[in-house]
Design a protein around this nucleic acid. Structure first.
Length: 760
DNA sequence: CAGGGCCGGT
DNA sequence: ACCGGCC
C-alpha cells in the first residue's frame, strides 16, 4: 500500500497555526473541497465561495474559538466575526479498544490468550475480545460474566494508576504530532488535524495522489472512488492510520479511529468497524449515520437525563428531535442547550477541539455497600487522602480547594445524588503537598474533610453512605519554588509552570517490537493486591491520631492563622452546647489528650470519641501522638521517653512555632513514613530489641490503660505488619525509573511540547 | 452499576 | 459554592 505521504509523520517541531495560510492555502483548498456540504447551514455554498473570508461569518457561532482558530482570525470583521473554526476541519476521534484490558494484557502478556475481564467492585467494566467472543460484555456483573464464561480471568481494575499513565502517554504521543488534542475520558482523544492535512495537501497538490482512503469509508464498500472529491478527508484517513500505527508501535495499543469534519461526526463514525479499524465519514453521508442512530441517547452529548426530558416531550428518535420546533425546545432547555441539541440531531457540531492540558482536578473515591460510622468515614477519608496527596505531590501543582463528596444510600434513585461540600485549602497545607510534606498534609486535611462531612451528615442520626470522594481542584502551578526531583507527572507542560517532566514517545526505538517490551517484567507486579490493609484497629488509631495531631498544631499561634473555618463548624445545635460539652466532659478525656484540642473538634466527633464504642481507640490514641511531637528531628524515636501532658504541649508549641520543614516533618513521620526514603519507610515503630512497646510508647502510660486495651495493643504491635506508605503508591519501582530513564534518554525532546503553549 | 474528570448553570 | 449532567 503506497502510502500517500508516509515519510513525515513524525513529531514536528514547528507549530503552524492558521495565521498566514488563510488566503493562500485555504483558498486553494476551498477549490479542492468544493463538494463539502455544510449541513443545515443557512448560508449557501456559493455565498461562502464568493469571498475567502466570508465563510467565517456564515456560522452560527456560540462557541469559543479554538486556539488555532483564534490565531487565525483573518481580516478584522468586527466583534461579530468570531475567529471560528475552519469551514472544513478534519477531525479524528481515537478510541482505544477495551482500554483497561489492553493495559493489563501489556503488563501481563499471558492474559492475551485468555478471556480477560477487568473488574471493579462487582462489575466487569471491560473485557478483552477473547472474553467477548464468549458472551462477556461491558458492564456485566461478575456473576453473569462467570456464568457466561466460567474460565473468565479477572483482574481488579479499581486502581487506575496504570490506566491513567498509559492514557496520558497516548495523549502525549498524539500531541507530539499535533497540538490540538482533546481527551475524552481515559481512552478517547479528539485530534484536529486540519493543519496537518492542509500542509500535506499543498505539498501533494500537484501529484494528485488522492487515490484512496485508508481504512473504511462509511456506507461505501469501495474506498477508492471518492478520494478525489474529498482530498482533505482522504488525507486525513492516511494521517489517522499513521497515528494509529504510532500508537501501536510505540505504546503497544490498538484502537479505532473516526475521521470526519467535526467531533460529533468523528465520534459517531469511529466505532463503525470495531476492533482496531478506522472509518471515514463523508459529508454526503452525514444524514445516513445520523439516521441510523437507534435513539436520542446515542447522540454524544445526550445523556440519560436529557434523553428522559426529551422523551417527556414526546421525542424518541433522532428524527423526532430534528422535526421538533426549536421554540418548544428552548422552552424546556433554554436557548443554548436547545440550539445545541437541535444541531446535534442534525449532525452539526461546531465545537472546536479544545486542547485538554493537564487535569483541572485530581480526585480519588471509593464506593461500598455501607458506611455508617463517623470513625469509618474518617478512616476512609484518610486512606483516600493519602493516595490523593501523593498523586497531587507528583503532579507538582498546588491545590487551593478541597472537596468532599458523598453518596447516601436510598432505595429509590440509588445511583444518583451525590452531595458535596468544598472549602479552600490553607496555604500552608497546600504547600505541604507540593513540598513533599505529604503526611503532614494528610493530617491537616483530615480534619478539614471531617468538617465538610459534618456539614452534610448529622452523625448523631444514623446515616448510610455508599461512596466517598475526595478532590483537589483549583490547581495552581507553583512558582519557581520546589522543582521536585521526581516530578513524575506525565501530564502536559503548562506554559506557566517552570518545571515539567515530559513523557515523550521515546520508546520508539527500544521497543519497536512492541509486545515484549517493558510490561514483561511488569507482570510480576500484577499482584498489586498484595498490599494488605492494616487491621482496622490500627487504622482507627492512626486516623484519630491524625486528627488530634492536626488540631494540636492548629492550636498553636503560628499555625492557627487559617484556622477560622474550623470554628465555624455548623453542626446546628450540637454547636450550642459546645461549652457545656467541654466542661462536662473534659474530665473524661484520656490522659494526654489536650482539652483544648478536644474542644476544637466538631461536637459530633467529640461525641463519637467519647462514645463507649470508641473509648478504646481513643485511649490508645493518647499513647503515641504525644510522644511523637517531641521528636524534633528524627523520624523514629529510638528511646522510649515518658512524656507528660505539659511537656507534650510544650513540645507541640515549640514545634509549631518554628515552622521550618525540618522540624515539622518529624511530627508524624513514625506513622506515615516520609515518601522520599523508600528504603526504610518500612517500620512504623522502632524495633527496640527487648522492649515490647513501640519506641514512642510510654510504659507508664501504657500500664494505666485498661487491661483489655493493653492486650489489644500488644497483639497489634506484635504482628506489626510494617505499615507501608499507605497503599497504592507503590509505583516507585517502575514508574519512577521508567520515566526518569526516558526523560533522560531523549531529554532533548522534552521541550518540544513547550512550543504548543507558546503565547504566539 | 465503577472510577475519574470536565463543564455549565446558578 | 453546589449541583447536574456527560463521557
Amino acid at each position: 500500500m503506497a502510502l500517500l505521504h508516509k515519510p513525515e509523520l513524525r513529531p514536528t517541531a514547528r507549530c503552524t497555526f492558521r495565521t498566514t495560510t488563510t488566503t493562500t492555502t485555504a483558498g486553494i483548498l476551498k477549490k479542492l473541497q468544493n463538494t463539502h456540504i455544510v449541513l443545515e447551514m443557512d448560508k449557501s455554498e456559493e455565498e461562502m465561495e464568493e469571498d475567502d473570508t466570508e465563510w467565517r461569518n456564515s456560522f452560527v457561532e456560540s462557541v469559543p474559538p479554538s486556539p488555532a482558530a483564534a490565531a487565525a482570525s483573518g481580516p478584522r470583521l468586527g466583534k461579530t466575526s468570531l475567529p471560528v473554526t475552519p469551514a472544513h476541519r478534519v477531525i479524528v476521534h481515537f478510541d482505544l479498544d477495551c482500554f483497561y484490558a489492553q493495559v493489563e494484557m501489556i503488563r501481563n502478556p499471558a492474559l492475551r490468550e485468555v478471556p480477560l475481564g477487568i473488574q471493579q467492585k462487582y462489575i466487569i467494566v471491560t473485557c478483552n475480545y477473547v472474553a467477548r467472543e464468549q458472551g462477556v460484555t461491558k458492564l456485566m456483573s461478575v456473576t453473569d460474566a462467570k456464568e457466561k464464561c466460567p474460565q473468565l480471568v479477572l483482574v481488579k481494575g479499581e486502581d487506575l494508576t496504570h490506566y491513567r499513565d498509559m492514557s496520558y502517554k497516548v495523549t502525549e504521543l498524539l500531541m507530539s504530532y499535533c497540538p490540538l488534542v482533546e481527551r475524552l475520558g481515559f481512552d478517547e482523544n479528539f485530534v484536529d488535524i486540519t493543519e496537518m492535512v492542509e500542509r500535506r495537501l499543498v505539498e501533494t497538490l500537484e501529484s494528485k495522489n488522492f487515490t484512496s482512503f485508508k481504512g473504511h469509508v462509511y456506507s461505501h464498500s469501495s474506498a477508492a472512488v471518492e478520494a478525489h472529491d474529498h482530498p482533505s478527508l482522504a488525507l486525513g484517513s492516511h494521517i489517522a492510520a499513521e497515528l494509529r500505527e504510532a500508537i501501536h508501535s510505540k505504546l503497544g495499543l490498538t484502537g479505532c479511529a473516526g475521521i470526519a469534519t467535526s467531533k460529533l461526526l468523528a465520534k459517531l463514525v469511529s466505532g463503525t468497524f470495531k476492533p482496531n479499524q478506522q472509518t471515514t465519514l463523508l459529508p454526503e453521508n452525514v444524514s445516513d449515520i445520523i439516521g441510523c442512530l437507534s435513539g436520542l441517547r446515542k447522540i454524544p452529548g445526550v445523556g440519560h437525563q436529557t434523553a428522559k426530558r426529551l422523551q417527556a416531550l414526546g421525542l424518541v428518535s433522532v428524527k423526532d428531535l430534528q422535526l421538533f420546533p426549536l421554540n418548544d425546545l428552548v422552552r424546556e432547555f433554554g436557548d443554548p442547550s436547545a440550539q445545541r441539541l437541535k444541531n446535534l440531531a442534525n449532525g452539526v457540531d461546531d465545537l472546536p477541539v479544545t486542547p485538554t492540558g493537564p487535569p483541572q482536578s485530581l480526585s480519588d473515591e471509593d464506593s461500598f455497600k455501607k458506611m455508617s460510622s463517623t470513625k469509618d468515614v474518617m478512616e476512609k477519608i484518610q486512606e483516600l487522602l493519602s493516595n490523593l496527596v501523593e498523586r497531587m505531590h507528583k503532579d507538582g501543582r498546588q491545590p487551593h480547594t478541597f472537596r468532599l463528596t458523598i453518596r447516601r444510600y436510598s432505595a429509590t434513585n440509588k445511583w444518583f445524588s451525590r452531595e458535596s461540600r468544598q472549602s479552600p485549602i490553607p496555604n500552608h497545607t497546600g504547600q505541604k503537598i507540593t513540598s513533599g510534606g505529604n503526611d503532614d498534609a494528610v493530617v491537616q486535611l483530615v480534619p478539614l474533610a471531617m468538617k465538610l462531612f459534618h456539614k452534610m451528615v448529622d452523625s448523631r442520626a444514623t446515616f448510610h453512605l455508599t461512596l466517598i470522594n475526595v478532590c483537589f481542584s483549583n490547581l495552581q502551578a507553583k512558582g519557581a519554588a520546589a522543582n521536585r526531583k521526581g516530578a513524575i507527572t506525565s501530564f502536559f507542560t503548562q506554559s506557566t509552570s517552570p518545571r515539567k517532566t515530559q513523557i515523550l514517545p521515546t520508546q520508539s526505538q527500544d521497543n519497536s517490537s512492541q509486545s515484549g517490551d517493558s510490561p514483561c517484567m511488569d507482570h510480576q507486579f500484577s499482584t498489586r493486591s498484595m498490599i494488605t490493609q492494616p487491621t482496622s484497629t490500627t487504622k482507627s488509631i492512626r486516623s484519630l491520631e491524625a486528627v488530634l495531631h492536626g488540631l494540636k498544631r492548629k492550636q498553636c499561634p503560628v499555625a492557627a492563622v487559617d484556622n477560622t473555618p474550623l470554628q465555624e463548624v455548623s453542626c446546628s445545635k450540637a454547636r450550642s452546647d459546645f461549652d457545656e460539652t467541654d466542661s462536662r466532659v473534659t474530665h473524661r478525656l484520656p490522659l494526654n489528650v489536650d482539652p483544648e484540642v478536644f474542644r476544637l473538634l466538631p461536637a459530633e466527633i467529640q461525641e463519637e470519641l467519647l462514645s463507649p464504642a470508641n473509648t478504646k481507640t481513643l485511649l490508645s490514641t493518647s499513647v503515641s501522638p504525644v510522644a511523637v511531637v517531641d521528636l524534633p528531628h528524627t523520624t523514629v524515636n529510638k528511646s522510649p521517653q515518658s512524656v507528660t501532658d505539659s511537656k507534650s504541649i510544650k513540645g507541640i508549641k515549640k514545634a509549631a512555632n518554628k515552622l521550618d520543614p525540618s522540624d515539622r516533618s518529624s511530627t508524624v513521620n513514625h506513622t506515615f513514613p516520609e515518601g522520599n526514603n523508600m528504603e526504610e519507610e518500612i517500620l512504623s515503630f522502632p524495633q527496640s530489641s527487648d522492649c515490647q512497646f513501640p519506641g514512642n510508647v510510654d510504659p507508664k502510660v501504657f500500664s494505666e490503660l485498661p487491661v483489655d486495651v493493653q492486650r489489644e495493643l500488644m497483639s497489634e504491635w506484635k504482628q506489626q505488619k510494617p505499615i507501608l506508605k499507605t497503599a497504592s503508591s507503590k509505583k516507585p519501582s517502575r514508574g519512577l525509573m521508567a520515566k526518569d530513564k526516558k526523560s533522560a534518554g531523549k531529554g532533548s525532546q522534552a521541550n518540544n511540547l513547550l512550543k504548543y503553549f507558546k503565547p504566539n
